[in-house]
């Protein structure tokens, strides 16, 4: 559905996208994972035909976003990161506006948006600007869906959204995928990556890896331990001081400790911490998650630079 090869986009002296290549298959739920400023929005704007690029090759459903922009705009639904609906129009008026633009009716594709729309329907006469964050997000998704797009582009739909609404939003995405819509979604929340079929990790305009979440995790080749002790702050500073440690990052109530040597053991970590007078020490060997892998790749990239 999406084919991007060696894409480069520069803004004056800043290279926003630096040789980006990725492919999104038909019907796939694809995640673009990376922090603010990584280039996620720029990539969305290129794919949705809203931004010209400097180098490379981009195809969306076999069409070129520069020459065939009209065809692409017909078949995509794009939800920008910034709320972009008409604040002074009501929920219903915004929806009618989008159906009119795409020469369709609310009734025609009602099945597609029904699950989401019923949740905001009680407020359908309220101006969009007066809705809560979660409701705005649902309305924006409805507006992106009313013309039954083949490809849905969602730029950080869950940023600033609470943990419960985020779970609900991903359930909605799964249902849309089942209806055959290809979805490309970006997020700065690493825990959401595991909900995608494949993900691209992006940082400073470069793709650090494209794979299934399991495949990305496999690139994490070092021993990883979850460590806990009474004094959390001195635990993390002591681990960072240790030559054997590659990195020590806080993860909730644990420190995730990555060791340099393949043969490191939990015993070795324990005895080091006892030598530093830590109490209630617990060390468990664990497998990495996407966030561990992302930080590991960031450190590897910094080292190679």
């Amino acid at each position: 559905m999406i084919e991007v090869r060696n894409l480069v986009k520069r803004f004056a002296e800043v290279t926003a996208l630096n040789n980006v290549s990725l492919q999104v298959d038909d019907g796939e739920l694809f995640g673009l994972i990376g922090p603010d400023g990584a280039g996620k929005t720029t990539l969305f704007r290129v794919i949705s035909s809203l931004l010209l690029f400097d180098e490379g090759h981009v195809e969306v459903a076999g069409k070129n976003p520069v020459s065939d922009y009209a065809a692409i705009r017909q078949m995509i639904g794009y939800m920008p990161g910034k709320f972009s609906l008409y604040q002074d129009l009501s929920i219903l008026e915004n929806l009618r506006f989008f159906t009119a633009i795409f020469k369709t009716t609310l009734e025609e594709n009602y099945d597609l948006i029904k699950d989401i729309y019923v949740q905001i329907e009680p407020f359908k006469h309220r101006p969009a600007g007066k809705l809560s964050g979660g409701m705005k997000q649902k309305l924006a998704l409805c507006c992106a869906l009313v013309h039954k797009p083949r490809l849905l582009l969602l730029d950080e739909p869950t940023t600033g959204v609470d943990a419960v609404s985020r779970i609900e939003f991903w359930e909605i995405l799964k249902r849309l995928k089942q209806q055959g819509i290809t979805i490309m979604v970006s997020t700065p929340y690493m825990d959401e990556a595991s909900l995608c079929e494949r993900i691209a990790l992006i940082q400073q305009g470069q793709i650090m890896g494209v794979d299934s979440p399991e495949g990305i995790i496999k690139t994490f080749s070092k021993p990883l331990f979850a460590v806990k002790a009474d004094d959390f702050y001195s635990l993390i500073t002591d681990l960072r001081d240790w030559n054997e440690a590659l990195s020590a990052f806080s993860f909730g109530e644990y420190v995730h400790l990555t060791m340099r040597s393949e043969s490191s053991t939990a015993m070795q970590v324990e005895s080091y911490l006892f030598s530093r007078n830590h109490s209630s020490v617990s060390v468990k060997a664990i497998s990495a998650n996407v966030e561990d892998s992302f930080m590991y790749l960031m450190l590897k990239k910094e080292e190679s630079q």
Binding site: P35, D36, P188, Q203, F249, M295, M298
Partner: peptide, 12 residues
């Protein structure tokens, strides 16, 4: 929300 959208290392 001081850390919204920040990369995982910077956040820590």
């Amino acid at each position: 929300e001081p850390t919204g959208g920040v990369d995982p290392i910077t956040r820590r």
